[in-house]
Write a protein that binds this DNA or RNA. Sequence first.
RNA 1: GCCGCGUUCGUCUAAGGGUUAGGACACCACCCUUUCACGGUGGUGAUACGGGUUCGAAUCCCGUACGCGGUACCA
Length: 510
Amino acid sequence: MAKKVRVRFAPSPTGGLHLGGVRTVLYNYLFAKQQGGDFILRIEDTDQSRYVPGAEEYIYQTLEWCGLQPDESPKHGGNVGPYRQSERKELYRKYAEQLVEKGVAYYAFDTAGELDEMRIRLRTETNPTPQYDHTVRMQMRNSLVLAKDEVDTLLQNGTPHVIRIKMPEGETVSFTDAIRGEVSFETATVDDKVLLKADGMPTYHLAVVVDDHLMEITHAFRGEEWLPSAPVHVLVWRHLFGEEAMPQWAHLPLILGPSGKLSKRDGAKYGFPVFAMNWNDSKTGELTEGFKEKGFLPEAFVNLLAMLGWNDGTEQELFSLEELVQRFSIEKVHRGGAKFDYDKAKWFNHEWIKKVPVEALMPQVKAVLAEHGVQVTDDAYLSNVIALVKDRCTLLPDFWEHSAFFFKAPVEYDTIAVKAKWNEEKKAFFHSYNKALYSVSSWDAATLETVFKSLAETAAIKPGELQLPFRIMLVGGKFGPTVFNIAEVLGKKETISRIDAALNQFKDLR
RNA sequence: GCCGCGUUCGUCUAAGGGUUAGGACACCACCCUUUCACGGUGGUGAUACGGGUUCGAAUCCCGUACGCGGUACCA
């Protein structure tokens, strides 16, 4: 029987989650749920200097907003915790030392200064960034060159040191990536990466292997930026737990901005968000806008992210999270990076606003209106309004522009537009229409239109000539849904009062 | 520099030896609508380049170019 599928998303809490990060979460989540497996959130906070307060909480909130809840995490608990690497610190050293004993890793006592010195000394035109690798390690201060008793003394004296992996020289390390197929590296081209830092914390390279093993991770999906260090991870797996126990790797393509790599700067420059939610950096005081606050629906956000680098082979583009869980396949994820297109993103949101039921939009539309000082008390009224205008809204804040007149009677009118069509006959028509409205049998768009048209006929005016003035009376300008629908939603009292008010405004028009 | 990964309309992508290279966004035109949108119909528009393999190549192989990533006691 196959092992239960377990995947993880392992961010470091250093800031907001951008598009690529959330998409990595999404693909992990989709795969786990489809396979009936577990989705684990592990916090990789091994670099204390980069830790940003609030970043972890931000991650939970983002996942919650997107509907991608982990089964296990520092917050949700689980059987293989702790899920924060800083709290697992003590457990990594023994694995690193195990590697030293096997002769595949070594102690290195070089100071930061000595490292710098080496990099400067060896720097040439054709080798601008010398690495700590097989060509230089024998010139450095480490347990490979120092006598054993000297090393022991240094260790006993608590001399600061790291543990580095000893990359073999003439070997080819290869593995199968679920997206890219067989990938291979010459070990001689990879440097002796630090596995355990001087402060006792593991680097990513050690922690990812140890934790994936201890947490029984079966599939490891991560960004393509990790591909170059994959051979290190394969080797650590081989020596610690056996390569056959290694998770199935998949390196996801990167999401690019309009000018290459996607950055916060792109967002500022091109006017679109790159983070899932607003991120307020406590260090810089800088606010980076999020998709949520920009007015995206989580359904749309998830949908557009899923389609950025994956497609099921059909022409379907609109998928709910449930459908994605059903249809997702890691093999169909693309190899190439995808440039993010904000226009397309907005299209997804528009489609989802149209698709989602009115009730689901109520709280969010209320919030939008509240920002403009409108407190909605009548839910039934709001629901009618939303039903009438939702198809016209691309982002949530658009609801204001498209429905403000339902909550505030016009104060200014597009009199220029009225003027062209205004005369005494029409004025008379509206007086009589308004009168008729008092006693109309049923207040619905169809009836209002019938009465409107029959009165127009009596007055011998083409209804079309009257609709524009009517519209302007109700909303103030040349916009909005069908005018009779507006009147229906507005209600009898309000409609009549708006006609009166407008007639009063138009009386000097000539 | 070196290592790795990529490359189909402007963008996201389909087609994985035989298709007039399909769809979506954006753009343009027309239609609908006596408002503004939505919507509908149609259009412009792509296999990076050069070799090879093959009866036949977007698809397989090699090279080149370009892009991206990595090259930290960061993840």
